[in-house]
Design a protein around this nucleic acid. Structure first.
Lengths: 146, 146
DNA sequence: CTAGTAAACAATAACCATTATTATATAAAA
DNA sequence: TTTTATATAATAATGGTTATTGTTTACTAG
């Protein structure tokens, strides 16, 4: 409750109902939602909210570094309230995005790669998540029994 | 010349003029061009070529693993004829994309991250390239002289 | 507390990279 | 050379995102 308000004040962001709603939804989710997801969810409780406003707010949060943009899906922008550097994993079977803890990375620590100055980085992994892997395993085994 | 033809045969890709043109342009470039770039360039010598065809050909090459798609720019698909795993760096000053050699990566080597099976990965770095850095340095120094 | 004002919002149109469609042209096989 | 499946050119359609604009709201000053 207080969290959003204090964060906004610290970052000189005007406090509005819509911004609090968007920030609190993001903060309470580990799903890396898109603007559409957030809009659909908020509309249930707050039918007057506009999709364009959700986009505008997310862009504001991004430039103020309150959220991190995740472009692991080719045609959608996803958002993550965790701003500390970390990687992401996209499951090709279920479409879920998972945070991946950072391993020690020489280039990121040095802040340069082949002479170029690194300000930011994104690590994207693609594959099948452990849940889908397990599900596929069960399906194969039950197939064999027939 | 021969390179493209043999590669197409090996991958069961029908040999056409347009495919050879696209592949040879990509192969001869380190610029990570978009479909538009490729289309604009080829159109000079071959005015009848179609942008949609360039897109179709690039998608074919991607699925056949002849090229790698690079999504380091938020709203454009870029293409790289180097399929060996490596990272990319985008210069925010000049917009150029540079290949970055891979450092040893535990997760990529093990093929798993936090239990999820990794099939592919993309590492994107953002910052200012060394050429732009040098240019900015010169500009600052000449500013001080006044 | 109220009025004033700059900023934010809702609604909707526009944008634009990419994809789909379809009639015509072409590569490879017979 | 003929045949036929496939690729291409031209163009329309798609869809996530951004721009626009009239209205509403959050903050400030009196």
């Amino acid at each position: 409750m207080k969290k959003g308000i204090e964060l906004f004040k610290k970052n000189r962001i005007r406090i509005t109902q819509q911004r609090l709603l968007v920030y609190r939804l993001l903060e309470g989710s580990r799903a890396h939602p898109t603007a559409e997801h957030i809009y659909a969810r908020l509309k249930k409780e707050n039918p007057s909210i506009s999709l364009a406003t959700v986009y505008t707010i997310l862009e504001l949060f991004r430039t103020k570094r309150l959220v991190r943009e995740v472009r692991i899906k080719p045609d959608r922008r996803c958002f993550d309230p965790v701003i500390e550097p970390h990687h992401h994993f996209l499951c090709r079977a279920c479409g879920a995005i998972f945070d991946i803890d950072l391993p020690p990375c020489l280039m990121a620590e040095k802040g340069e790669a082949q002479g170029h100055a690194i300000e930011e980085f994104q690590g994207y992994f693609y594959g099948v998540c452990k849940m889908c892997k397990a599900r596929q395993g069960r399906a194969v085994r039950s197939q064999r029994r027939r």
